[in-house]
Computed example of a mutant assay.
Amino acid sequence: MTNPPKKPLKVAVIGYKLAEGGLERVFGTTTKMLHDAGIEVHTLVLEDKIDYEFGGKLVAFGQYLKFVKYFKLRNYLKNQKFDCVIDFRHRINPRMEWVFLNFIYRNLKFIYTVHSSRLETYLTDNNWVAKQMIRKSYKIVAVSHFIKQKIESEFNAKLVKVIPNSVSIHSVSTTEKLPFDYIIAVGRLVPLKQFDQLIESYSNSVLPEKNIHLVVLGTGEEQTLLENRIANLNLEDKVHLLGFKENVWGYISNAKFLVLSSQYEGFPMTILEALSLGIPVISFDCESGPNEMIINHHNGILVENQNFTELTHKMNIFVEDEVLYQNCKTNAISSVAKFQSEVVINQWLQVLNYGN
């Protein structure tokens, strides 16, 4: 006698937007993964910014005023009778998170995701509220082992699971071929990414004289500051701020290597995407993320955290030591096999207790 078919799981995945940042891209790719696995997914977006791919049914609440928006959200969650809610929001405001805990998510099974080693970005800076969030949630999903250990250590939490960001190999367009050799950095133009200091490190390296350019993809508040820094260093013909690009993979796939110079990270998608395209990476050894993807001198180079002098030195090595560079390039794709979406989706299904 055959077992009856398993009832499809019904899941709401909530985020602020599907545009601009790495978190938002992970939000979108996760909804797509879950949808492709046969789960009924409702992608709930609290703002009306939608540029990235997503899976399932899209419901946007951005047209409503703030308080109306959250009443609408509560009613939608209650009426749809979801098996689980997965929360991809930044959670900074303790009062707002108290409202989510005691009103919007009341009597619901919900999972919080944490994407940064700065826990206050996802658990607020209020210790009491953070403990309530952890206690009332079904699970906490951290994107790195470091973040998991930090949550467990600071809050004595027991139900923290690690599910890294995932990557799928995209078909790469060749239309983004630029007429020069270049290295690339990707991210919002904000202080966290430290692109001003990256430009300085680049200017101090041998790359400009070797006619290897620096391309930066992203938009943000530091656009003018960075333009001024480039002008002051007389690098207008070598450093290119190309803004937001929908097909970032085309630009990454034609770069010599990717550079990450952030103050801190969670599990940066840009590293994962570059390696999956066969492009090695030079990155600061931030406390969370890069060292769970980069194996030093195997698929890239880890640089002492926040040491920009050393970053310049490592960029020089990567363009002067062809044997090391080609070795890292050869190993890049195979090094991230465990982060393929086909692997990561099974970790989500286990957390949701769905599947075999």
Rank of each mutant, 00 (worst) to 15 (best):
L9M: 12
K10W: 13
K17S: 14
G22P: 00
F27M: 05
M33D: 12
D36W: 00
I50D: 07
D51G: 13
E53G: 06
E53H: 03
G56T: 06
F61V: 02
G62I: 02
Q63F: 11
Y64E: 06
K69E: 01
Y70A: 14
Y76Q: 15
L77H: 06
F82D: 10
V85H: 05
F88R: 06
N93D: 15
R106C: 11
T113V: 14
S116P: 01
S117H: 09
S117V: 15
I140Y: 07
V141L: 08
V141M: 09
V143P: 05
H145Q: 15
F146V: 04
I151T: 13
F155L: 15
I163F: 11
V167A: 07
I169G: 13
S173K: 06
T174P: 02
E176Q: 11
P179V: 14
Y182R: 02
A185F: 00
K193E: 05
F195M: 04
Y202G: 11
Y202E: 07
N204L: 00
V206H: 11
E209Y: 08
E209T: 09
L217Y: 07
G220V: 04
E221N: 11
E221H: 09
E222A: 12
E222F: 12
Q223A: 10
V239Q: 01
L241F: 07
L241Y: 04
F244C: 03
K245F: 01
G250P: 08
V259R: 03
G266W: 05
P268Y: 00
M269E: 04
I271T: 07
L277I: 10
G278H: 07
F284V: 02
F284S: 04
D285R: 10
C286V: 03
S288P: 06
N291Q: 11
M293R: 08
I294S: 02
N296T: 06
L311Y: 06
T312G: 05
L324M: 13
E342R: 10
V343M: 09
I345K: 05
W348R: 09
L352D: 05
N356F: 14
